[in-house]
Simulated scan of single mutants.
Amino acid sequence: MYTISDLQKLVEQELEKQQFVVEPKGLYEPIEYVMAMGGKRIRPTLCLSACYLFNDDIKKAMKPGISLEIFHNFTLLHDDIMDNADVRRNQPTVHKKWDENTGILSGDAMLIKAYQYAAEIDGQHLKKVLDLFSQTAIEVCEGQQYDMEFETRHDVKVDDYLTMIRLKTAVLLAASLKTGAIIGGASDKDADLLYEFGENIGLAFQLQDDFLDVYGNIETFGKAIGGDIVANKKTFLLLNALQLASGSLHKELLTWINAVDFNAHEKIEAVRKIYNSLKVDELAKEKMNFYFEKAIASLNEVKGRESMKEELREFAVKLIQRSR
């Protein structure tokens, strides 16, 4: 019997076997560099988990699972270029270690590599898997476009934000599960239920990320607290605050948003105080729990191996209970 921890180890072992560097090395070395940066390998692990719900032969889901990890890292590589980020997982980003042109081209090659890995399955499931992969890939791009547009738009609503994070984050988790289910021989209903599970866990996860950026512990969250506030990032918390605030409170919030010269610590504390007075932290928790409960309800309906269903329940709990 496999656990999620077992499957994560198998994914890591498989990735270590992959030979990403061939000629020309200038194209492929950045790919190996990105893939060696680490991470929790959540997407391929979910793919294998979903396959194992219905089938003992998880090996046939390994290459499609790896394809999802390659695609995920491709999006991070290009995101770093668009954000002009210096560091990813405590290491220089590709466009800083090499240059921007290399980052763009190596990222393009990663996307193609992802398709090659996704296609390494039997013909019976090939079209379904590739169609799902393509749909997910374009949705992630749509989510990134919305995210970029939101930086300058002044009419973004909470529902717009939820649409954006569904596309940018949640659909890839959902597709990882559905891909494994398809390969494992699940019924269409069970495959769709696992997609819903992944989609809703992805939404809860991103809302938890927003929450922790304001209320988390720096030691356990893994990055500085308050970065979203400093950057005026349109999160669930900020958008709700803008909608709920009135009078002097609304004016104070806009003052901080529009401030050019400010003390970061002072801004974080002031905006957090506004959030507390409006109880948007409670709204965020309620929304997280709403999506979490929807996710678990979908998982409970799946007719698959009970031991792995329990593993996925525990995984979901851990994912959204990261040191509140």
Rank of each mutant, 00 (worst) to 15 (best):
G198I: 04
L207Q: 02
G227Y: 07
F205V: 09
N232A: 13
G202Y: 07
Q243R: 14
F197M: 06
G185F: 06
V230N: 07
Y195K: 02
L203Q: 12
I218R: 15
L193D: 06
L212I: 03
G222Q: 13
L239Q: 03
E219V: 06
G222E: 09
G185P: 06
D209I: 14
D190M: 08
L212D: 00
D188S: 15
E219R: 11
N217K: 13
Y215D: 04
I229Y: 11
S187Q: 04
L203D: 01
G202R: 03
V230R: 12
I229T: 10
G184W: 10
I218D: 08
I218F: 02
V214Q: 10
D210G: 05
V230C: 04
N200L: 03
S248M: 13
A224H: 09
L212V: 05
Q208P: 01
K233D: 13
Y195N: 03
A186W: 02
E196S: 13
T220S: 12
L239H: 04
L194H: 08
N240K: 15
A204T: 04
N240I: 06
T235E: 00
L244W: 01
L194K: 08
A224G: 09
A224R: 15
F211N: 08
V214R: 05
F197R: 10
Q208W: 14
F211Q: 02
Q208S: 07
S246K: 11
K233L: 07
Q208E: 11
A204N: 10
G202C: 12
D192E: 14
D228G: 03
Y195D: 09
L212E: 03
D190W: 00
D192M: 03
K234Y: 01
E196L: 12
L242P: 01
